[in-house]
């Protein structure tokens, strides 16, 4: 993996003896989409606010492109785009005036860049209307536009799917994927709903009560290993037969089916073995053992 654009070290936020965020350590790399998952109140927003210099850091540090957010805030924020909670804009200004407003806060953003980002978030037709006439989805897109305005290396997005309808969420996801791969941008995205981000994240950090519970949840398992359900007439016999041939795999019996976690190439072999032993196979189905299950296992509760 490429260089770490963001390094978070021993990041701690303490208010009145209480640790809101405690000793977080992680890196974010270029081209990577890193998910940040945790129940509401776990410390996601506080962490992101510290990374963006909105909230002071009690202990530890965050460096962005090698610049500390504590001591070199101006340089550190030069390469970051962000949305914190809802991207509130100046409602009495037009979308374009809002973008121009933020353009003036950076060095040398050409006007053509504004046209480009507006095009990218598909707001060209409405950009000259006042923001108070915008729908929630349009405001969210304008929020993305302002975050991308200065072609940042990193995007920090706090619950960017809040208030979006399913098609809006899908659009955003597709768009973020393109950004990460085509523009080599690192994206750090938080959510309290795993299902919204699991499809796009390369890795997911899970935070609970201010601490990271598992930083090694990698989403690659979906492609190599998957859980497959076999619907067969004699479950006991099937387990016996398959257990002999495929000793390295574990087979479990569920309600109507037989479950096994395996890779794609093994599935036809398993099927062949079953038919050889005259076990009737009515159906084979891939079951997503999703991050959701692991998230629930790890946090031991309801994610929302």
């Amino acid at each position: 993996m490429s260089e770490a654009i963001i390094q978070v070290r021993h990041l701690t936020k303490r208010i009145k003896q209480k640790n809101l965020v405690e000793d977080l350590n992680f890196d974010i790399h270029r081209g990577e989409i890193l998910g940040f998952l945790g129940p509401n109140g776990a410390g996601k927003t506080t962490t992101m606010r510290m990374m963006l210099g909105l909230t002071s850091i009690t202990e530890g540090d965050v460096t962005i492109g090698g610049h500390s957010i504590k001591t070199e805030k101006e340089q550190a924020l030069e390469r970051v785009g962000g949305i914190v909670e809802n991207p509130e804009m100046y409602k009495f200004l037009t979308g374009l005036d809002n973008l121009k407003h933020f353009q003036r806060m950076y060095r040398d953003i050409p006007d053509s860049r504004i046209a480009d980002v507006v095009e990218m978030v598909k707001l060209t037709d409405a950009i000259k209307n006042k923001v108070k006439t915008y729908s929630l989805g349009m405001r969210q897109r304008l929020g993305i536009a302002q975050a991308l305005l200065h072609s940042p290396d990193v995007l920090i997005l706090d619950e960017p799917t809040n208030g979006l309808d399913p098609s809006g969420i899908r659009e955003l996801r597709d768009y973020l994927k393109v950004l990460a791969s085509n523009e080599n941008i690192a994206i750090f995205i938080s959510s309290h709903l795993l299902s919204e981000i699991e499809m796009i994240c390369d890795r997911v950090l899970i935070i609970q009560k201010g601490k990271l519970t598992d930083s090694q949840v990698v989403n690659e398992t979906q492609e190599t290993q998957q859980v497959v359900a076999f619907e067969v007439d004699q479950k006991q016999k099937a387990i016996e037969v398959l257990g002999k041939t495929f000793a390295h795999l574990t087979f479990t019996e569920a309600d109507e089916v037989l479950l096994v976690e395996t890779d794609r190439e093994t599935i036809p072999k398993l099927n062949a073995t079953l038919t050889q032993h005259n076990i009737k196979v009515y159906g084979i189905k891939g079951v997503q053992k999703s991050l959701e299950d692991r998230f629930l296992e790890l946090t031991g509760g309801n994610p929302s």
Binding site: L54, K73, V84, M105
Partner: peptide
């Protein structure tokens, strides 16, 4: 009250 303060302060400006 507009919620825009955070938008203003995440810029590379003291």
């Amino acid at each position: 009250s507009w919620g825009t303060m955070k938008m203003l302060l995440i810029r590379p400006i003291h």
